[in-house]
Design a protein around this nucleic acid. Structure first.
Lengths: 211, 211, 211, 211
DNA sequence: TATGAATGAGCCTTCATTCAT
DNA sequence: AATGAATGAAGGCTCATTCAT
């Protein structure tokens, strides 16, 4: 009896469940962003989500769990805004491609300030697992950049530099940009982003030295 | 009467008092570095320092207070390793001077890993005051770099770039370096530092582009 | 939706909540009476109430809060045993009326020794707020008595005395009686109360002087 | 050698010691009065006395000890202002004598507000020993009054009342007066005291009833 | 599935007292 | 006798998590 009608029900249920999870996640995000991990209490989350205390634990194992999940989501979003630069590696000139990546990245950062905040503000020390996550993400990014640099050198487009060092320098400029965005949380006009993106790109490409 | 005996006594007392403070400070530093602010309990500190609970509060007002002091010390150390580059602005060639600064900075970072960890790991969200401290420090640094860039441009040594953007890009490469150092907390040989410092400098000066 | 289910549930919840509060209050009262404010620890209260530490803070903000509430309750009980003397001011002879009040008051005091103890033992100095509460209560009482005296004088029933002074003298005899009751915490037989009440009344009415 | 000169020294020493004790006591009194027992910390006392922490414990065993001593002093002062009424029991008319006592008592109270505060404000619950002290004092006072009443009745000067009840009623009016004095800690002019003392006496003697 | 009352481990801080100098 | 640094027991309160309904 119960089983017979389960199909429709459980579908709905499952979908509802997903929605609930999603809703809680979305409700929690700005809270975490606003108050930081430690200052965000379960009370804040359930209040923001409009659910009861117990309900929260129906969908998430712990405070750390929801935070980690949120972090992962953020990382994925950011990741996907970068990856894809490789696609169509054949034709477009190197510089244009890089410019595209940087611009895309910065735009993602700006339009997802909440997301970015995690990566910048909640850096390390919360939880072993979270630490590892972030570390891995950045390592991945650096590795990705390094490969791109190696490729560029092989193609004769780039100077012969220590690609490891170059990669994390680039990583550094990007992170710093993210931090700026997070810190001055005013609205940033599109053209400003472009100007800065261009500046960052220019810096990374040519450095500061004349000629 | 009180004053007459006090001289010798209080001198000793004051000196001892300073020593105690210093000792507690030094004992607390690695604990904070190791476990992070939140996971460090007063118990850990007093155990490390070999003092009683109450003694701690004889020298520091609170956990936040000792942490802030430690942070300030770190900031000062780092600051003093940077500032001073301007001195003798007349003769030494720009590049050499910059190289000196970068090398000095990186060396400071490496040889004070504990110190560096604060600046990188405990970034934000602990305490309004601590946040402000860090923010101010980095702002100061960026401002310092920007001035140097403006000067360099005026002297015709540097390309005409957005000095604001350039400054925080450089800041970013430095911070990233610091992070690397902190994360992989193996011993780093001097020559490696030099290699990387050179790499970072090279990156900042010439970027990655050929020619 | 939330509201629709809430009706029945929350009613029960609210009622239970009230019960819990009440239970804690009742459990705390004898503890406070027995050990005094400062010697009563949260541990004592929760032990007496048979609840967990956190539960206490679910219902009361602090130790001071529950004490204040208990005090207020006591004051109210006592107040209500006094006020009402005015009612039916037309017929009953002054003396009988007063006798009634005094008897009622003393009876309240005796049958609520716990209550009385607060007013006598925890006098002052615990907390600004608590102090103010007590002061206000006694001021109110004195004022009430003074008005009654003034009325009595106007009606020609009482000697012309300084009603202010008279009022606090009466207040004093009452408080002293309360103190006696609290101090010798043996059971007091009804007839004793009556005897003493009569004695107090007699004293207040006629003083000690012959004729 | 040491012993030979000890006479003079130890005399001076003993005298100094006495002075120190006295000085600390006097310094502590207003602090206790101002802040109450619990809010007065050893720090406050030694600061007021201008001595070192350890020195305090050279003269007093504990916080409770100095408080108790201060209390005893106060009680003695008050006691001595009352007792003495008996002296010259032969001639002076009862009323005059009583009036004298009351006036003397009230004056003592007013001119020793610090002293009085102890008896009123720090009433009970601090310490078993202190409690007992106060209880004993008041019991003694009541007993003294009761005896006087009994005497007065035997002499045919007073109405036949329950001397026990009468005694504590009188005690109550006195205590209430003390409280008033303590609570409104403005300066009270001599003539006011007299007026009130007269009022209190009048009340105690004749009550409130006409004729 | 949802609720929210209950739990209790854990932590920071205070302050009377001791004791080496 | 005087000092004041050191001690450590003790207590109020928080908050993530559980569980009966």
């Amino acid at each position: 009896m119960k089983e017979s009608i389960t199909d429709g029900r459980s579908r709905r249920a499952r979908s509802q469940r997903k929605n609930r999870r999603q809703a809680i996640l979305e409700a929690a995000r700005p809270v975490f962003v606003d108050k930081g991990y430690h200052q965000t209490h379960i009370s804040d989350i359930i209040e923001a989500a409009g659910i009861a205390r117990g309900t929260f634990y129906l969908y998430f194992d712990s405070k750390a769990a929801i935070f980690t999940e949120l972090l992962d989501l953020s990382l994925d979003e950011l990741r996907s805004s970068i990856i894809g630069v490789d696609q169509g590696e054949d034709a477009p000139p190197m510089e244009a491609q890089l410019m595209g990546t940087v611009r895309r990245l910065l735009n993602t950062v700006v339009s997802n300030r909440l997301l970015t905040t995690f990566l910048v503000r909640e850096a390390v020390g919360l939880d072993e697992q979270i630490d590892a996550r972030l570390k891995a993400f950045y390592a991945e990014l650096v590795s990705y950049i390094r490969d791109a640099l190696d490729e560029g050198m092989k193609m004769g487009l780039l100077r012969e530099i220590d690609s490891e060092v170059g990669a994390f320098c680039i990583m550094g400029t990007i992170k710093q940009f993210m931090e700026q965005v997070v810190m001055y949380d005013r609205e940033v006009p599109k053209e400003d982003i472009d100007r800065v993106a261009l500046g960052v790109l220019d810096f990374n490409l040519r450095g500061i030295l004349k000629s």
